[in-house]
């Protein structure tokens, strides 16, 4: 992340602005920056999405590969997350520099997807105990301009929405040996139901108020923030406090209320955009990084 150094006066300016519900870029406390979402940007993945939130730029690719189910859940497939903090975002991430942040993000992703209801992993099973689909969700960080977690969760949801897994059939012959047959029609595929996939809402405490979607400057002024993963129905699946400051219990409840409200609207607008893009089908002009 490009490090920002703010003077005392600048910090006071940001904090006072937040108190008046008017932030440096003109937003209110509960407003997101403009979010750009585009799906199907990398053609050799099963699903992909690129999300640009202010200066934060995330690319997510989902690859479906065949694997063996885990011993404890023999009739379920599973998701594997991987985050690459590429040196594109900042020179500090060169070599192994980004691994610490990457591990933190990966663990958060595993946690918000740990709930059984988020993705129907049973539908990923092909042949109990023998074959299942493994969805490799690879997150690539291209630029960090604050509010990384929210942008990543939006991109992951969009990429999972876009994911198409080829249909396969298990054929069994007389001797009991099984054979997997891939459908001939490339359009014959399974889609994932992403209605219950949560999005992360990070609320940063600045002064005595809290804001959503903090920029780097605002993050530098905030002592602590609360990370909430909210589903489209407004239920929380994970909660985590970030930052080195402390929060009092009362403000945590306030933040949860805000998170719920903002989360519901975020999900609704994301779904609307994804459906709209979907309806355009192949006629859609792909923009990618050229636009």
């Amino acid at each position: 992340m490009a490090s920002v150094v703010l003077s005392e006066a600048e910090k006071v300016y940001v904090v006072h602005g937040v108190q008046e519900d008017l932030r440096v870029d003109g937003r209110g406390c509960e407003d997101y920056r403009c979010i750009e979402v585009e799906t199907d940007v990398v053609s050799n993945t099963s699903g992909s999405a690129r999300v640009k939130l202010g200066h934060t730029d995330i690319l997510v690719g989902v690859k479906a590969e065949m694997g063996t189910p885990k011993l404890e859940n023999p009739n379920e497939g599973y998701l594997e997350f991987f985050v690459d903090c590429s040196a594109n975002a900042t020179p500090e991430f060169e070599g192994r520099g980004g691994e610490e942040l990457a591990t933190e993000i990966v663990n958060t992703l595993y946690r918000i997807f740990s709930s059984e209801s988020t993705i129907d992993v049973k539908s990923l099973c092909i042949n109990p105990r023998e074959h299942c689909w493994v969805l490799y969700v690879d997150v690539l960080l291209l630029e960090c301009g604050g509010n990384l977690f929210d942008a990543i969760s939006i991109a992951v949801k969009a990429a999972l929405f876009n994911t198409r897994i080829p249909k396969v059939r298990v054929l069994e012959d007389e001797e009991g040996s099984k054979e997997i047959e891939l459908s001939d029609d490339p359009y014959d595929c399974i889609r994932l139901n992403v209605d219950n996939v949560p999005c992360i809402i990070t609320l940063s405490k600045i002064g005595c108020r809290h804001v959503v979607d903090a920029t780097l400057q605002e993050e530098a002024c905030s002592l602590a923030s609360l990370l909430l993963s909210v589903t489209s129905r407004g239920t929380f699946t994970c909660m985590k406090k970030l930052g080195n400051g402390s929060l009092d219990p009362e403000s945590i409840f306030e933040m949860m209320e805000t998170g719920k409200r903002v989360g519901k609207t975020l999900h609704a607008s994301l779904q609307k955009i994804l459906d709209k893009e979907e309806s355009l089908g192949t006629t859609r002009q792909k923009v990618g990084f050229l636009g």
Binding site: V42, N44, T45, S48, L59, G61, V62, K63, F82, D84, S86, A87, E94, G95, Y136, D138, L140
Partner: peptide, 9 residues
Amino acid sequence: QYSMATFST
């Protein structure tokens, strides 16, 4: 530094 996205291939 040359890197390839894990999903690129």
